[in-house]
Amino acid sequence: MSDTGHAPIWRRDFPYTSEGEERVTRREFARYLVAASVAVAGSGGIVSLWASLRSVNTGVEQEIVAIDQVPVGGSHLFQYPGPEDPAILIRPEAETVLGFGQKCTHLGCVVFWAAEDKLLECPCHEGVFDLSGEPVSGPPDRPLSRIDVEVRSGVVWALGIGSEA
């Protein structure tokens, strides 16, 4: 180890060493890595606990709009389940109304109803969803949140956030 004959020039010019400089060992690195491994497992535990304990607002029954105010092939924007949650009601056929959360599952831009294609499109990154809310193309890989809707006496009601799209 005291082979100064092969020491680099910079070592001769700056002959300062610190204790343990040469001993940044694999074992040291392994120790830090194991600590990080435990930390990552702990982070997963926190995420899981958070997922279990948080309450999800699934909404209450709420009147949206009279059905005759939504043209066949058209859409209507509303807020559900909270006043700051954008949602969209679409009426692809005379007897069919569908409700979706309007936030794209990619990065949260609002989707709009492309009537000519009968698809929900996100203008930010060209994510496209079909009438069941499933992603068809673009970056989103999760479906839009589905809102259960029902027509009662000519009025469309939101019943709650659906369990799946």
Binding site: V34, S37, V38, V40, A41, G44, G45, V47, S48, A51
Partner: peptide, 18 residues
């Protein structure tokens, strides 16, 4: 989330054993 965490904890235990 819990399933992934359980497996992750097993792997952490494996790392510790190593």
């Amino acid at each position: 989330a819990w399933s992934a965490t359980a497996i992750s904890a097993l792997l952490a235990a494996g790392s510790l054993l190593f």
